[in-house]
Each structure stands twice: as structure tokens, then as C-alpha cells.
Simulated assay, not measured.
Amino acid sequence: MLLIASSTVLAAPTPPVPAAGAAAPIERPLSIRLDIDATQNWRNDKQWSRASTQQHYQLSTRLRSDGRLYHDNLLEPDLERRVRIKSEYYTYQGLLQLRRDNGGRLPDAAQAARGFGGQTLQQHHACVDAADCPNAVAERYAAISALQNNSLAELEEFIATYDQPGGTYRYFFGYAGCPNQMRLQHRAHFEGEQAYDRDKKKLQPFTLDWSADSRGSADEQARLCQRYVATVDTRDGSVYLETAFVPSARGQIVSVLSGASEQRQADLPLPSEVMRWLADQLGHAPPQLKRSATLQLDRPLDGNATVLGLFDGSARVQLEWAFTEAKAP
């Protein structure tokens, strides 16, 4: 049994570099369109509000596969198995890179550790445990940990298991500089009366208006390139998506309390119930789908749960998703 460091299972691994004679890389376009039309009422004793929102999100990007077929599903639904599979895949990718860097042979652990530029593994452990740690560092850390706990012969045998025929899963990753587009539109209006004094007796009228219409900044577009990881089961064509990510629109908030107005910029959140529904639809899905639903909204649309009370509303959502083979030009 290969001894690996389980703490390295974090972000998506970097797309592998295919070896000579390996399968040709494959790219697939990914697109998500989500429309939301929702209303909600709130009451807490004499305090009250009503809210409505219309939101539209349209995203397209591309993911890349090395073209190989793997035996394990990198996004295995069983969490315990997924942790093992992803941890081993990290290790595998790190070992391949170390072997490429060392003229086609695996180095020993001390030699590999020096490849960190003179810093110690302990110094890099904090990076590996951080959400924004570069994937290459996490893979290198996993590989060095494996070198410390296994013989070179055992690791070569481990690498060879990935070349065994009969795999059924294709892995797809985002990549830097991918072509992508986004359109994020958000409108929301809240109005009501709320008490801001300690005894909650003096009601003050308020309104809150949110508005955004964005195609994403250069930074947001760059981040979108690497937000998605998918596996395709070639037996039935179904797709496993690691995170059904939809970015919040950056827009303007205008609040009026008893006639006094304030404005500020902020990220305008999607309803949490919609995000849960979206994750359920796309966690394991056909390569193309159109679905709609009416969802109950029990959490505040503005995200402010500190006011307590009863929230009652619904959202009509429509989803279109596609992750299909790219059409020939």
C-alpha cells in the first residue's frame, strides 16, 4: 500500500502533461445559464418587509483533458473514496513532474526537497493547507511525502498502475488563459419597516435596491478559467462536476433609511437555496440539460439573518447546462 499525505487533497490538480505517445489532449466547452425570479416576505412582530429579485447568469469557458482514460472517478461521490483517489492523483502528478525534472528517473526525497528552492517541507506545509496554494506546490509536496515513505521501486510500480488499460473516466481541468465569457445581471428591491432601537418599538421605513450588469473584470475572467473540474464517464457520457460555481455580480447597493440615502459597491449574492439546488443538479448530470423548479426561500434574500423572524418566499429558477464535445470547425 502506498503511503501518502492525506492533507494534500485540496484544490484541483493541475492538468497533466501527456507523455510521448499518450492520448491527444481534448478540450470541451462548458456553459451554464441560470435565471432566477424570486419574491419574499419577512415579518418579526411589527417589523416587516417584502422583496423581489430578478437575476441572470450566463457563463462559458473551456476545460482540457489529457485524453487518457482513468480507472477511478476523480470526483467519486463517496467522500472517503474521493479523498483517497484525489490524494493518489496528486501524488502521481507530482511524481511525474519530479521524474521529468530528473531526466526520466525519480530522485530521492532529499534531492526532490531541494527542488523547493532551499526551503523546507515544513515551510511549505502551510501553503499546502491554504485554499490558494498553487497546485504544483501541493502536488510536489505529495510526491516528496511519498518518496519519504516508499521505496523508488514501489513508486515506479504505483506510477505504472495509471497506464493499465481499461479505464473509463476522462478528467477535465480548467487552464490559464482559456477563452471565456460571462454576463452577470442582478436586480433586487427591498422595502419595509424595521426597528433599530433597543426595545424594537420605533419603526423606521427603509428601502434597499441592488443593481448589477457585469461581464466580469479581467481578474474575474482569469479566475473563471480555473474554477471547474469535471470527469466524464465514457460508458454513459455522464458528467461529474466538482463545484457548480456561479460568480456573484459586483454592483451597487442603494439604501434609504427614514429618508437618508447611502450608496456603496458590493458583491450581490445568489440565494443560498438556489446554489444548493444547482449543486444537486450538476454534481452528476447528463452532458446537456434544461431544468426548472420552484424553490422555497426560507433564508433572507439580502443575507441578513440577524433580524430573525419569519422569511417566506419562493424562487422560480431555470437552468441550462452543457458540457459536450466541441464541434469541428
Rank of each mutant, 00 (worst) to 15 (best):
S7W: 04
V9D: 07
T14K: 10
P16I: 02
G21E: 13
A22Y: 06
A23N: 13
A23R: 13
A24G: 08
P25D: 10
I26A: 11
I26H: 11
I26T: 10
E27M: 11
S31L: 12
S31A: 15
R33Y: 12
T39N: 13
Q40Y: 01
D45Y: 12
K46W: 11
Q47T: 00
R50Y: 12
R50S: 12
A51G: 13
S52C: 01
T53A: 14
Y57I: 04
S60P: 01
T61L: 14
L63I: 12
S65F: 07
D66Y: 01
Y70F: 13
L74I: 10
L75N: 07
E76P: 08
E76F: 10
S87H: 06
E88T: 06
E88P: 03
Y90W: 07
Q93V: 05
G94S: 07
G104K: 13
R105H: 10
L106K: 03
L106G: 02
F116W: 13
F116N: 05
Q119I: 15
L121V: 00
D129K: 12
D129H: 03
A131G: 06
P134M: 09
N135K: 11
Y141W: 08
Y141T: 04
S145L: 01
A146I: 11
L147S: 00
Q148A: 09
N150Q: 10
S151D: 15
E157N: 15
T161P: 00
Y162L: 02
D163K: 13
T168I: 14
R170V: 04
A176V: 04
G177K: 02
P179S: 06
P179F: 02
N180T: 03
R183F: 08
L184H: 01
F190Y: 13
G192I: 04
A195C: 09
R198V: 10
K200A: 13
K202A: 11
L203C: 07
L203P: 02
F206E: 04
T207C: 07
L208Q: 14
L208E: 02
D209G: 08
S211I: 08
A212M: 10
A212I: 07
A212T: 01
D213F: 11
S214Q: 15
S214C: 13
R215G: 15
R215C: 08
G216Y: 12
E220Q: 15
E220W: 00
A222K: 04
R223E: 06
L224R: 01
C225L: 14
Q226W: 00
Y228G: 00
A230M: 06
V232Q: 09
D233W: 00
G237A: 02
G237I: 06
G237L: 05
T243D: 01
A244C: 10
V256P: 00
S258F: 00
G259N: 01
A260I: 04
R264L: 12
L268M: 04
P269G: 10
P271Q: 05
P271E: 03
V274L: 01
R276H: 14
A279T: 03
Q281W: 09
G283N: 05
P286N: 14
L289K: 06
R291C: 00
A293Q: 15
T294G: 05
Q296D: 09
P300S: 05
T306C: 09
D312W: 08
D312T: 12
G313N: 09
A315F: 09
A315C: 10
R316W: 09
V317A: 06
V317K: 03
L319D: 03
A322Y: 01
T324A: 13
T324E: 15
K327G: 14
P329R: 13
